[in-house]
């Protein structure tokens, strides 16, 4: 490792550019993954038997394929299919390495997030859902206004874990020439004939980024769970009380 390179502004300037790409990859693929994942979770829980098993199959498949193979498959394999080489899909997704990465990461995230959200939905208390029906809300409103918001809070820490996983996993974008944090570090390493120093610098930034995200998640978790001032107590045996 070379100290002069480690303390040079050129190195830090260029890997900070890479950090931006890493953050962009993470945010976009988490957002798309969350949308698709939530839809899958809803189908899994409320869909017909057929729809539910289709969603389950999706989840199984995309959790089973290593992300790198999925990325290769989409980046190198998909362009072989002729209809993918035309139109908007090609322009937006398959023509660029960045677009293909977003697609691959989103598809992968959706599978994991679907399981997380499903778990969140299943832990919503039955009574809270019934209370929605009891005041006359429609099924759609009960799901969108009660079940899902509570479910999302329930699985917030899992969404956080998934975000951290995505930050790390997004580094494989560098393999298909995207200049994310790792990609940029390798690029700088090639220029200066020093592979190690930029990698160490990138490692520090990954550490910092993950720490920040972990803290944000913990803060959000606490902010969304109001501290009990005085707790409700469990059920007591039948008590006889005379009304005063």
């Amino acid at each position: 490792m070379s100290e002069s390179l480690f303390f040079s502004t050129t190195l830090w300037f260029s890997i900070l550019r890479g950090l931006q790409i890493t953050i962009l990859l993470t945010v976009l693929s988490m957002a798309f993954g969350l949308i698709l994942g939530t839809a899958l979770a809803l189908v899994r829980v409320y869909g017909s038997a057929l729809a539910s098993s289709v969603a389950a199959t999706y989840i199984f498949v995309f959790r089973g394929i290593p992300l790198l193979i999925l990325l290769y498959f989409l980046y190198y394999g998909a362009p072989q299919i002729s209809f993918l080489r035309t139109g908007l899909l090609w322009d937006v997704l398959f023509s660029s390495a960045f677009g293909t990465c977003i697609l691959a990461f989103s598809l992968n995230n959706a599978a994991y997030l679907a399981e997380a959200v499903r778990g969140g939905i299943l832990t919503v208390k039955k009574g809270q859902i019934e209370a929605g029906f009891a005041i006359g809300l429609t099924t759609r409103k009960v799901i969108s206004r009660i079940t899902l918001p509570i479910a999302m809070r329930n699985c917030l820490s899992q969404i956080g874990n998934e975000t951290i996983f995505t930050i790390k996993a997004s580094s494989i974008a560098s393999i298909v020439t995207v200049r994310d944090l790792l990609g940029q570090a390798q690029y700088v390493g090639n220029i200066y004939y020093d592979n190690i120093t930029p990698l160490l610098a990138a490692a520090i930034l990954y550490l910092v980024l993950v720490q920040i995200v972990e803290r944000l998640i913990r803060w959000a978790d606490r902010a969304l769970k109001p501290a009990p001032l005085a707790g409700a107590k469990g059920k007591r045996p039948n008590q006889l009380q005379v009304v005063s």
């Binding site: 208390k125 009574g127 809270q128 019934e130 209370a131 929605g132 029906f133 009891a134 005041i135 006359g136 809300l137 409103k141 206004r145 009660i146 918001p149 509570i150 809070r153 969304l224 409700a232 059920k235």
Partner: peptide
């Protein structure tokens, strides 16, 4: 269900809404 209200043994308030929000839900949505 709008015309027949129900109060539950275990309250079943919605934890993500304030007391006011819980009461407002039926007013705005139903």
């Amino acid at each position: 269900r709008r015309r027949v209200g129900m109060v539950f043994q275990s309250f079943n308030l919605w934890p993500h809404r304030t007391a006011l929000g819980n009461v407002m839900e039926g007013l705005t949505q139903v």
